[in-house]
Design a protein around this nucleic acid. Structure first.
Lengths: 158, 158
DNA sequence: ACACCTTCGTTCGAATTTGAACAACAGGAG
DNA sequence: CTCCTGTTGTTCAAATTCGAACGAAGGTGT
């Protein structure tokens, strides 16, 4: 018996997981966006840039590497780094070993902005996601979505 | 002892869950977007509009109600429905009981487009998310994210 | 009937995002 | 060295998104 031409639709449980994921993701992004904008004048994307930079050695990352971590397009990152540069939160530095390379580096002002914005952001993430879930749910979510991310990272490069 | 002024940062497990959620969400959206665009010429958002309409009684929904389900802005929906109308996939119908009201209704062509686009989309959702997780992980994810969504829906209206 | 507050969908301008095209360079194979 | 292929970051036009402001109605209390 040959494989069915009919696709394997999602059963109710699978559908619930999928819809829950999409809906929670959208709602969460919406809320975090508003909160950050009102509280610190940053978009979520800009905030994430600061976070990734502050977590990197030397508070700086190559543009491409940063774009990968953020899961965004190179051109999108170029735009946002320019914005952050105008705000004085990030600076561009050319790479010594590669003339084409550009480092985005967190400025003192950027570090300060992050220190100011982080508490409110983390509190909201906690209130809306972390504290809504049990310890076990959190663990399963971390492990499951970690696997999903890994799966997605794989067939991206080829 | 008064509550600490210092915010409760995320511990490693919590951080892993949060980063996993954000990353998986971004990667997944990126992939689905590409697949739908190449395969059917639809954006994910447009596809979701068709899905929600096809699931609604009479294949139609009020604009506001649809915007709620999609978790998007009213103006964003106005734009997308206009696009879909130009493609002949959706039609606007005025509401009999409320002059201000507008129904978005799935056309025959829209139904056909959905029938054509759905298999590839579902297959990818399955490949990248559903089939990567175990049955238990799926259940936990559905329940947990369901709760998160509910939590988010609550303090939205007031 | 009247004023008052809310809801509905659209319009508008500004901000953001994307993919494709591009120029400049890196890194090897020959 | 020289050609070839892959990278790097930017630019560009087009598409999308959002929030605020808006005009038009609904609904309520008096």
């Amino acid at each position: 018996m040959p494989p069915l031409n009919e696709p394997r639709w999602l059963d109710p449980d699978e559908m619930a997981a999928w819809r829950g994921f999409v809906t929670a993701s959208n709602l969460l992004n919406r809320r975090l966006e508003r909160q950050l904008k009102e509280d610190s004048g940053l978009s979520h994307q800009q905030y994430e840039i600061l976070v990734h930079l502050s977590a990197a050695p030397g508070d700086s990352l190559r543009m491409t590497e940063l774009a990968d971590k953020l899961v965004t397009s190179k051109s999108g990152l170029t735009y946002q780094v320019t914005q952050l540069e105008r705000m004085g939160l990030v600076a561009r530095r050319s790479c010594p070993s590669d003339v084409r390379g550009v480092f985005a580096e967190l400025t003192d002002q950027g570090r300060e902005m992050l220190r100011q914005a982080a508490p409110g952001h983390v509190a909201l993430v906690r209130e809306l996601l972390i504290d809504v879930l049990t310890r076990e749910q959190l663990a399963v979510l971390a492990e499951g979505l970690g696997a999903v991310s890994a799966r997605l990272r794989l067939d991206e490069t080829p």
